[in-house]
Every structure is written in C-alpha cells, then in structure tokens.
Design a protein around this nucleic acid. Structure first.
Lengths: 336, 336
DNA sequence: CTGAAAGCGCTAACAA
DNA sequence: TTGTTAGCGCTTTCAG
C-alpha cells in the first residue's frame, strides 16, 4: 500500500497537481468550490503532503539545530527550553546536536550539521567561539546565532553577556563580606567564558589588593564531579579557605556536597558562590549565591535571530543581556 | 553561487552521476582509479550530497523523534540522554517533540510527527499509553517504541517496568520503619504510572492494615511546584503526617523544600520518599530515599527498538527493566 | 482561474 | 565496470 501522493488527489478530484498544491499552500487563484472538492478528496484519500519532497524543492528543511558540549546538564536544559519556547507555534523543529569535544572535532562539526540538513543552528559555548566552525557554517550557507560568544564578535549575531563584570561582582560580594582567604574553581579552559570569569575575579581581587594563593586555584571542567573533586582538595588542605568561588553552579553544588561530607557548615565555616543561576542552585540547601545569567531568554533570542535570518534576511546585530547577583544562603561573613 | 550537485561532479570527473553516487555510497563496481578521481573532483568542487534529495528517494529521513510531556525536567533529561547515547555513532538524528498536553492534543500529535518527516519515535508517558496516537502512528507507518507503557501492551514494543511493585516497596519501606501516619502526593492522573503507583501504595497499606486519611492524599502534577504546594497543605494541617510518599522525585524535592521553610527536620520529624532516582534526588540534603527507575537505560533500549524496526524489521518484543529501592537520608523511623 | 511541462538532487533498475 | 532512463513527490514557470 503506497502512500497517497498529490497526483492521486489530483486525479481523483479531476484537477491538476498544481491546483492541489495551491490548495494545500493556501495560494490564491482557486475557486472556493474547487478548493472544497480538493480538500474533501484529500481527506477521503488520507493525503498528507510529503514534507521531504517539499523540503527538496523549497530548499528548506525547517530544521534548526542546537549545538552544545555537555558539561552542565542544567545549563543545557535551560538552553533547550529556550529554543523550544521560541519554536513553539513555528514550523521549525529542533534537532539536538551534542558534541563531545568542539575543540577536537571542529573539522567534523559542520559536516554533522550538513548531514542533518539544518536550515540554521544555535551555537552554545564553546562552539560559539570556534573560528573554524563559524567560517565553515558561513561557507555552507547555514544560518546561525550564538549564545554568549566572547570572540569573533563580528562573525555573526549572538546574545552577549558581560561575563567579566558578572564575575567581578561575584568576587566582590565575597570581598564585601570580609573574605580574604578565597579559593577559585575554574571551568573548562577551552570555554572562553572560563577565561572571562577568571579575569573578572582577578579584577576584583586586584582592586582589593588581595592575592590568591596558587594552591587555592583549582581547575575544574564545569561538571559537578570536577567541582566536587576540586573542593575536596581545597577542604582537605592544610589551611582551608573561608570561601569558594565556583565558575558555575554545577561545580558549586559539587563543592557544597564535598563540604557536607566533611561536616563543614556552609556558610558558617565556608561560603560558596556559584555562577549561572541554574535550577540546581535553587534546590540545594543552603541555596547557592550566584550570578544570574538569563540563559533561557538568551536561547529564545538566539533562536529568534536564526529564524529572522531564515525568514527575511535578518540583521546581524547582537543583543545584550543583563546579569544579576543573587545573594542567597550559601554566603556569609567568614568565621571569626 | 549554486550548490554543487552530483551532476557537476560527474561532468567534471568525466563519469556518470550514477558512478559518483556509487562512490559516495561506498558501493562496489567502481575501479579504484575512478573512485579516486571522483573523490578528488568532489573535494575540489566542495561537493556534499544533498541529504534531502537522498531522503526523498530513499524514503528515509534518518530523523527520530522523542515525544514527551514535560512535568519533570530531570526525567526528560535522562530520557533524552539515553536516546542520544544510543544514537551516537548512528546516522540518525534526534528531533525533540515536546507536547503540552497529550490528552488534549492527541489528534494533532501524529500530524506533528508527520510534518517532521520522522522515521520513528520514542514515546514517553503519557503518549506511550495513548491509544489514538498508537493507532495513528501505525497507520502513518511511523515506527515507535514506548517508555514504560502500562496499557495497550500489544500495540507495539516498549520498555516495561513494574510500577506497582516498585511503589509497593516504597510504601513498605515506610511501614517497615514504623510509620502509620502517612501522606501521599500523587502525580498527574492522566499518566498511567500515577494510577499504577497509587495501586502499589494501596497494596502495601492494605496488607499492613493501614488506612490513609482522605485529607492526607494530595493530588500533584509531577512538578516540583505541585509537590511543594501539596506538602505545604500537609505540613500546615492540624496533625502532621510522619511521612510523605511522593510519586516522583521532583515532587519529593518540593516537599523537602516545604519542610525546610517550616523548620521541620527531615527525616527526624517527617520522612520523605520519592520515586525515579532522578538526578535531583541525589543533590538535595538530605538525599531522597527513592525507587530507582533505569530511565536512561530504558531510553537506550527504546531507541534501540526503533532503530531495529527501521533497519531489519525488528521484533516487537518488550524488554523488562528492574527497579530498586534506594534508602537514603530522607527516611527514618517516625518521631516517638 | 487552471494546467502542462520542467525541474529540485538524488538513486533504482536495467542495459551495455 | 559503467552509463541510461525513469522516477521519488513536490513546486515553479509560463502558457492557456
């Protein structure tokens, strides 16, 4: 049993295929009478246009990709929900493209996207900063918009945030509380935001005349496990810091768990500050002081940019998003 | 600047399009010499096969959908990661299809899937139990596999779990600890698992001769907020239960937060037991006692079933997955 | 207002 | 081993 095609309907309704096409695409120049007859025969024959054939001839798959590298599930979830929010009530569908290591696979990524026939993609960090990927995408004619790009800003539109200032405020918060024995858990160094956040922290420390001890700077990977691991080392060390600055909330949660395992009270003995305002930062106890990144809204905006390019050329302007320090229960003055 | 097509390559390499096609599809009957020449001209012309044209003629889009209704983000995340895990190193791509209300939109869902040209779909509850959707899917020739179906088991393959027994064990755990003043927060009644879990609870209560007070049975929606809301009512009521059984972990987390807001110690004053072993159940404090559902593995298995049907007909056998009671820090004997 | 013919870019079937 | 012919199911001319 073959699927019914447009010709079946045309034959049955006694019209040409073009007329059926017109009816299904709400084009003018068809009498209401014919329109009705076509609709009815289509219904009777259980006809549904073959979207692949449409896609081929229209050169549009109506597929939009979301490219991400997965260190932090909560970040990805918000991103994805944002994209889906914008795609709701649109003809476009979301194809999820997880990439194990953008840095290593930059050569393959665009092939991956091409083989999915994507009309456009939303690029999360660190793909958003990868020069090679941006070039290849442009060459392949795949529209894109970026989440929080920090480099190659002229390469295409994106949703910007001021990671440096946001990080500075997070560090300043701890300094204001009186902390001086501060430790830092950095994120994946291949993510530009990690570099930016480090710079922001450093600006705050420099302005306050505080110098971090080298052994108090730990390298994480934006994952909870890496945060846990780093925190273990920090908390088991000879003299424990009074505060930990983690470059995202997942690592902050890892640090919180490490403290809990050791019976170290947060925030009384150690303050913890995260970054992002991920879902997880709100369900732990104590809830984690963090800097809100409007990830959801940024994803909505980026998707909007992709659609705009697809529909009407679209401008390539960036959009700037605000951050906000959220002081919660995981930070307090250092123990006296 | 047009995209290069297979004919461009054929002309340039002095062969027929079919030969180029053979080369790109690794078919036999092409001399190595020709093969090489074709590869080189393709490279020089920057040729990439148009996957939409391939899809049209092969009647295969290589797109697999994941259909879900979103009450619990942590559940969806695990599901999606499972699907992606199985799709890794496959030609298939994942299209995410969130559905606001399966019950209300059952008529539209298959149209939605058809318009995405999906080869197959993984159906999460409650779509997995929707008779109409299963029928339409079969009629449309879209392969599917289901996550934890509870009804229409003969309609197609799925990954089964024994929700009733799992729920019984969760309830039994509280009874064994000595609890008698137990409250229940139910999940969305349109999900069959909610009904099954209720039955499991009831079996345990009946066997122990315990009768729940009607006002201690609250209706939730599987969301954290709904769990929070229900717990507020339970904890503010005249006489507080000594234990709360929530039908998933998100609602359990909501209950935990409600207890915390009121300064009620968990588990000393109130025990809380969840369901699913979601990520969130492990990062709260206390960690939540729950019943592990191997959601990730089930998603892998379901995806496997879809691919099997697509590749080689595939059997339509169900696969059974085990559950496991995980006793953690949120449950203890009732206060004396 | 309607339809015939010519593709979109590819592969299947068959012939050479 | 290679090429020719005919589609896949739709839309786009452009003529009527």
């Amino acid at each position: 049993m073959r699927r019914t095609t447009i010709s079946d309907v045309a034959r049955e309704a006694g019209v040409s295929t073009k007329t059926v096409s017109r009816v299904f695409n709400d084009e003018p120049n068809v009498t209401d009478q014919v329109r009705k007859r076509v609709r009815e025969t289509a219904e009777a024959l259980n006809y549904h246009p073959n979207v692949l054939a449409q896609a081929l001839v229209r050169r549009r798959s109506h597929l939009i990709g979301l490219v991400y590298e997965n260190p932090s599930p909560s970040y990805v979830v918000e991103l994805q929900m944002g994209v889906l929010e914008r795609l709701k009530n649109e003809r476009y569908r979301l194809v999820v493209i997880p990439v194990s290591s953008v840095a290593e696979r930059e050569r393959e990524v665009v092939g991956l996207l091409r083989s999915a026939a994507l009309d456009g993609v939303v690029l999360a960090p660190p793909a958003a900063d990868n020069t090679r990927i941006l070039q290849d995408l442009t060459a392949a004619g795949i529209r894109f918009a970026r989440i929080a790009p920090m480099e190659n800003l002229e390469a295409g539109p994106g949703t910007l945030i001021d990671d440096v200032s946001a990080a500075r405020e997070a560090a300043q918060h701890l300094l204001d509380l009186g902390h001086r024995e501060i430790a830092v858990i950095r994120g994946d160094p291949t993510h530009a935001s990690s570099v930016a956040r480090t710079r922001g922290y450093d600006q705050a420390f420099a302005a306050a005349g505080v110098t971090l001890r080298p052994e108090r700077i730990k390298q994480g990977l934006f994952t909870r496990d890496s945060g846990h691991q780093a925190a273990c080392e920090l908390l088991d060390g000879a003299d424990r810091p009074t505060a930990i600055l983690a470059q995202n909330d997942d690592m902050a949660v890892g640090a919180l768990m490490a403290a809990r395992e050791r019976g170290i009270d947060v925030p009384a003995q150690v303050s913890i500050v995260g970054f992002d305002d991920s879902e997880v930062s709100r369900i732990t106890w104590p809830r984690i002081t963090t800097v809100r990144q409007p990830v959801f809204e940024m994803a909505v905006a980026a998707t909007d940019m992709v659609i705009a390019q697809l529909e009407d050329g679209g401008s390539s302007e960036h959009r700037k998003h605000p951050f906000q320090l959220l002081v919660r229960e995981s930070s307090s003055p250092p123990p006296t």
